[in-house]
Amino acid sequence: MNINLTINGKSYSQDVEPRLLLIHFLRDIAGLTGTHMGCETSLCGACTVELNGKAIKSCTMFAVQANGAEIVTVEGLANDGKLDPVQEAFWNEHGLQCGFCTPGMIMASKQIIDRHPSPTEEEIRHGLEGNVCRCTGYQHIVNAVKAAAAGAGK
């Protein structure tokens, strides 16, 4: 089946098998390997991308379901070498150690700030429930979201 997607502003048109998962389209066809595949059972959140403005897990969606959609992956955030405020905050606040979960954490964090421009700690933790990090103990990630929200409001 032929599908058309816009990923990070660039159009892709491709024949795919209906059973191809969106994450495989992103990584293997579009070559955007920033989106990680972790558990592949929609629990860990490493594969989180933005689809028409909403954070979704790309391991639990067939690429054909995204036909016509606009997708943003972690590669689509930085502009001309300048990091997105959320990326900047993860760096400054040590919101990562090994970095495997980071692309998904950053995409989920963007959703939190989109919906709650000044999020409370409870809103941040509720918003990160779908993302698992095995290194940081989450505290630095929560701090990073707070810092990003504070910085983005300036």
Partner: peptide, 9 residues
């Protein structure tokens, strides 16, 4: 229900 990503879909 579930988490943000699940609730979005």
């Amino acid at each position: 229900i579930g988490d943000v990503q699940v609730r979005n879909l």
